[in-house]
Design a protein around this nucleic acid. Sequence first.
DNA 1: TGAGACTATGTCAGAAGTGACATAGTTGCC
DNA 2: GGCAACTATGTCACTTCTGACATAGTCTCA
Lengths: 180, 180
Amino acid sequence: MTSTLGFAILAVLARGERTGYDIAQAMRRPVAYFWTARHSQIHTELQKLLAEGLVAYETQAGPGPQDKKIYRLTGAGTAALREWVTEPPRERPERDELVLKTYTAWLAEPEALRRLFADQLARHEARLADYEREEELFGGPPPVGDPRFGNYATLRCGLGYERHRADWCRWMLAQLSASL
Amino acid sequence: MTSTLGFAILAVLARGERTGYDIAQAMRRPVAYFWTARHSQIHTELQKLLAEGLVAYETQAGPGPQDKKIYRLTGAGTAALREWVTEPPRERPERDELVLKTYTAWLAEPEALRRLFADQLARHEARLADYEREEELFGGPPPVGDPRFGNYATLRCGLGYERHRADWCRWMLAQLSASL
DNA sequence: TGAGACTATGTCAGAAGTGACATAGTTGCC
DNA sequence: GGCAACTATGTCACTTCTGACATAGTCTCA
């Protein structure tokens, strides 16, 4: 049984050959920020996927003491990925520390709370600006059969999320200043 | 060092005395669905909080073989919680399986994909209807110093999130039917 | 020429989280 | 009268994830 992290790696490799390092980079930045993992976890998971025959690699001289390993999907890997895509996702519970803090807002000092939300709002607005710049580069949705459709659709989701979050922060700030 | 789960428990106990079972119930359902945990984890964490002196309990005859334990915050627990509330939250990476699947949508069979998103949309709409009913019960935001403000503010966040998600699912369905 | 960032691999201890097992009284429904 | 669901506690093996440690060549800028 492949874990969700395993499928996340397969999903990245489906776009083309990559080293473990490349995969870690791809999962670190916010576009298609759908699943994250540290390189330590990725190397471990790649070894499992290798043992299951879902990926294979070729070596090349690398900068460090070890050789560079360039991974690619095998036929079995592509098949497993294709089957997984349309299975309903497990309901992942939200674990959102900011919302948890909000739940206890009544205990907090109002000015410190204001700073907290102003800071969060700034982060969301910055990320939103980033995403909007990226969306312009697309100039509209790619066809559904194109790998780039996946990138665009996840970017759309990110845009919607950041807008919802920024709105909520603004609402919180309005509540806080109304109560002074 | 108290974990975020620890603070989630403290946040629930700040509303009033509760058993471990009650806390597990409170963290299971979607309003203030900010953090979840199984009862096995909650019992373990309560023992840690007890050792740190952040909670205390009194026993009462219970239904099972063990006595019922009614937990409450200690002074130190309230102080720790109050301090934590306004500290900036750790950036929790998103781990969203549906978005991950979307990233690989180009590999999927279009009809199966349509079913997946139609199903997800229905779930979000059902939850939205739930939340809207709850919002009506409030009839506007409680004052910021009231514990119920926390409930209302997290509900607002949930409403915004479900709307954003439902919108995104509808957009996906539109893309899929346009491509047939 | 030297410092710091980047590429690239990997291990390991420990924390956090899951799902199953175990126990047992009460309550509501058919 | 019996069955299922609910209340209520807890343990345990296992998986997943994190953060630190370890190694070492290249590239860029001052």
